[in-house]
Design a protein around this nucleic acid. Structure first.
Lengths: 203, 203
DNA sequence: AACGTAACGGAACACCCCGTCCGTTTAGCT
DNA sequence: AGCTAAACGGACGGGGTGTTCCGTTACGTT
């Protein structure tokens, strides 16, 4: 089916995707399509020719994050110490999530199955379940932990808004530290990343 | 300045506020003004005569929550056991927040000072600081806790979206339990409210 | 009952958004 | 160089939202 694209079309597509990723990461999913087209220096129609709908663009833009997500879980499984792997996974997820708004959306939001992300998502989800089981078996993760608790934490992390990305990252780090303490099977007090003064954005 | 309102105007104002509170609580702050006017069975202009801008309506609608917020903090200070008071405060805040979207906004969002909420907000904030100090002195709250951590938790709680209010409440309860454990000076494992399967809304 | 004015309601305005249509441009092949 | 189809871009339609305008209604006072 794939008639090879003409060179200008290929270039445009690439530029649109790059711009879209940047925009979505920085400003969230609701950046107007026109704005993305403008920044990519193409007409709206061109954008729509490559991505027939806004959701399609989302899916395409997040494909990368999806694989990053996989990598993070896989790395955690590769770590020798289960708890260390698990907690690093949580920290990295939250970090990505803080830096890239809509990162979790790739996971949570049920995108059109046509996007083909579903397969990878399921694979990652299974790996995640393995990771949880393994960390529980090691006695490090509380046994009443369920995978939805990770969703909970990620959704919660998304609630953290801040004026600047830097603050948002710092806030997420502290939040991750808090929440990880309560995920442990036998909680111990640990030092926290520095507190953040959140200048409460209006959004 | 306050020429007394005519009877129909008074009635309309009251009805608009009631409808707005319900709508904001249930559907969030971005319910269209027209929709609120429609439900209150008034014209748009009538609504605007009483509340010159959307933000003014927000402020007016949240005045009640603001005092509830005060009450919650005050109740916590009245409790004999510091930690019990503190943790109940967190739980009640989260609960309100889960039931009433935009509850925290009254706190966080810097509404126009004209709204007159600022004074009560500051008073509550001071009481909150007292509560924190007291709970720390009792050795129950970790000493690196800062008031911004409560903002963090509330903002995080706001990130928790769910299909139904009931699920949202359950999820918030579990989340509050998690986060409270990590606020403790000497964390101990506690049982959690039941896990919640979040059917991941698209929003 | 009559009347002045406070208050009303819906149309209208200004703006923003998604997605499509169609006349114009340009890549790539001969 | 010339031609054709792929690709382009800006204008357009349809829908939504906050806010204002203005002719109409009805409260409450005389």
């Amino acid at each position: 089916m794939g008639a090879p694209l003409r060179s200008d079309a290929r270039d445009n597509r690439k530029r649109i995707l790059a711009v879209a990723r940047l925009a979505f990461a920085a400003e969230g999913l609701d950046v107007p399509i026109r704005e993305i087209a403008r920044r990519a220096e193409v007409g709206v129609a061109t954008l729509y020719r490559h991505f027939p709908t806004k959701e399609a663009l989302h899916a395409a833009a997040f494909a990368e994050q999806m694989t990053l997500c996989s990598t993070i879980v896989q790395d955690a499984l590769d770590a020798p110490d289960p708890w260390h792997g698990f907690s690093q996974m949580v920290e990295r997820m939250m970090e990505q999530h803080a830096l890239d708004r809509g990162f979790a959306r790739a996971f949570t939001s049920s995108l059109p199955p046509a996007a083909g992300l579903a397969a990878e998502r399921d694979r990652t989800l299974r790996a995640l379940l393995d990771l949880i089981t393994r960390t529980k078996s090691a006695g490090a993760l509380r046994d009443d932990f369920v995978v939805e608790d990770l969703s909970l934490a990620l959704m919660a992390n998304e609630g953290i808004r801040a004026a600047t990305p830097a603050l948002r990252l710092a806030a997420s780090r502290r939040f991750a530290a808090f929440i990880l303490q309560s995920f442990q099977a036998n909680p111990v007090r640990r030092d926290l990343p520095p507190a953040v003064h959140l200048p409460l954005t209006r959004a």
